[in-house]
Simulated scan of single mutants.
Amino acid sequence: MSPAPSFETPASEAQPSAHPRPIAVLVDREGLGDSLLKLPFLRAVRRAYPDHPVWWIATHQTSMARELAPFMRPLLANVIENAGITTPPLPVIANLRKLPPFEMVFDSRTRGLTVLLARLFLKHRGFYCCLPGYLFSSRRPPGRFSRPRGIAARMLSLAEAAIGGPADWEGGLPVSDAARAFAAATLPDGATYVGLAPGSREPRKNWPRERFAALAERLAASGRTPVVFIGPQETAVRDELRRAAPSAIFPDTTARLELAVAIAERLAAAVANDSGIGHLLAATRTPLVSLFGPTEVARWAPFTRHGIVVSAKDFGGDTMEHIPVDAAFAAVETLLAQDGRPGR
């Protein structure tokens, strides 16, 4: 059984009442991709309200406290997991009342009762949530009456509602000099590198590995250098792709997520499944080709200004096998021609 959540204010955040109240963000269970889709919103809130510390409060686990924790230190003052604010109602009310007064609350959850309980029992000066029609929100985003379908755009609309106008959301992820030195040694200047991310947590979302290998060789034949991202549990995938795509580079980024970010910064473009690494590439502003099969593009597409979605539905199906290599290669060529990031 998980330990009971602690709602004590950290010593570093213990403040006199005259100091700015914190801002609360309430979320459900979050994997890496889920958290990264909320990163533009978080940037926007921190820039709009720099004096208010942000508390990230999760009903279960969140990558904000795990893989992304090193990147979140400048943005988050406190992260609470397993907060006990979902069900049953009476313990939820008690846990909500233990939390401090907030300047505003942003609730990303979509269950009406849990959102209503937060609205009623958290102390706040403003409340913003993702329910249809922005029900229970203090106000709607300017000019908007229905919520966006996409997770990232939906969250960003809550920031716009609080701010009362456009939100400043763009940015990258902080990387140490040591990580950048590793990336520069692995991918020296002078080549045009294209990232390939063949994995995800769900096999149904994975483009066939032989097509990633074929794409790698097609890129190499066109004068680009493929760079393959392999997760710590994907040793068999790495060995198979090394045999099938001998022209590719396989950097070892499994020790720290920061190394993958530093490698991504040196890419001219990338191709990824609907996956956490795909959202990470988007968060680094890498021009990105996203491959979608059974999952919904409008809801889960990475949030980026430099991206192309290639969907199986465009080729008559809803499985990843329907996406041809030619389509992925053409999308990469389009991104490279747009020069969204200088080639290296």
Rank of each mutant, 00 (worst) to 15 (best):
V194M: 01
W207K: 01
Y193H: 08
N206T: 09
P203T: 06
A197L: 10
Y193W: 11
E202M: 10
A214N: 00
D189Q: 12
P208Q: 06
V194C: 01
L196V: 05
P188W: 08
P198E: 03
A191G: 03
P208R: 05
G199R: 07
W207N: 01
A213T: 06
G199K: 01
A191W: 04
L187P: 11
S200H: 06
L196W: 02
L187W: 07
A191H: 14
W207Y: 03
G195E: 10
N206G: 05
W207P: 10
A197M: 10
S200F: 10
E202P: 00
L196C: 01
F212C: 04
P198F: 08
A213M: 04
A213D: 03
R209F: 08
N206C: 15
G199W: 09
F212T: 03
F212H: 01
R211S: 02
R201N: 10
A214E: 10
L215M: 00
T186F: 11
L196S: 02
P203Q: 08
L215T: 02
R204G: 10
R204A: 14
A214R: 04
G195C: 14
E210Q: 12
N206M: 15
A213H: 07
R201L: 11
A197G: 13
T186M: 13
W207S: 03
G199Y: 07
E202C: 06
W207T: 01
V194I: 15
P208V: 11
L187V: 09
S200A: 15
R204V: 14
A213S: 10
A191T: 08
L196M: 02
G190Y: 07
R204K: 12
A185V: 06
F212Q: 00
E202Y: 15
R209P: 12
P188K: 03
V194A: 07
A191K: 12
D189T: 11
L196N: 01
R209G: 13
G199S: 14
